[in-house]
């Protein structure tokens, strides 16, 4: 019986340290040194919150760059993240991929056999991936330029300016955050 009491006391003591004091100290530190990031890296445009730097959004208009398919319901639901969990041998995955490949080729006037970058065809793990590869962005440059009646070179410059490099040249891949890129297209400045 003696151990019960000791266990209970130890549990309460350590819970207090790990479950209240520790997260409170981290919250305090985070909000002093990284206040924007701690609150979700929210982007404001004209006083209105329009998204987060880190969270992707759904784009369907041909005037915008398109991102990855999202398996959440509704798509890009940042209140309930998740992937499709389709097996590589699942017929539905292959059918969806074929359909997606066809529609991307159509949208962008590509040849019938053109290979499409994988991330544009396949859903992300979180359903919220804001990034695509530079190749996938350049592939859409022609369409975006035409729809906006601007020079393709201008669009390509924006892609180049918004390409994020791997950390220390090694860790991760080159990538483009399409929410930021699309905001830049609309004339938004960081």
């Amino acid at each position: 019986m003696f151990q019960w009491k000791r266990s209970l006391l130890m549990f309460c003591g350590l819970s207090l340290i790990c479950g209240l004091i520790y997260p409170l100290i981290i919250t305090l530190t985070a909000n002093i040194f990284f206040p924007e990031k701690a609150k979700g890296s929210i982007i404001k445009s004209g006083g209105q919150a329009v998204g987060s730097y880190l969270i992707g959004q759904q784009f369907t208009s041909p005037r915008y760059f398109h991102g990855r398919p999202s398996a959440t319901d509704p798509v890009y639901d940042a209140g309930n993240s998740g992937g499709s969990n389709l097996a590589p041998s699942n017929a539905k995955l292959i059918a969806q991929a074929s359909g997606q490949v066809q529609s991307i080729r159509m949208e962008n006037d590509l040849t019938a056999g053109a290979a499409i970058p994988a991330e544009l065809v396949l859903a992300s793990a979180s359903g919220l991936d804001p990034h695509i590869s530079p190749a996938a962005a350049y592939m859409q440059a022609e369409r975006v330029a035409r729809e906006r009646s601007i020079e393709r070179s201008e669009v390509e410059k924006l892609i180049k300016d918004n390409t994020e490099e791997p950390f220390l040249w090694i860790w991760g891949k080159e990538r483009v955050n399409i929410l930021i890129l699309n905001l830049a297209l609309d004339g938004w400045k960081k």
């Binding site: 499709s84 490949v101 396949l122 891949k173």
Partner: peptide, 17 residues
């Protein structure tokens, strides 16, 4: 199905690769 090199990006994030 037309995916470049058949890279299996289903259920993966671009920043992780």
């Amino acid at each position: 199905a037309g995916v470049a090199d058949g890279i299996n990006m289903e259920g993966k994030e671009v920043r992780s690769g």
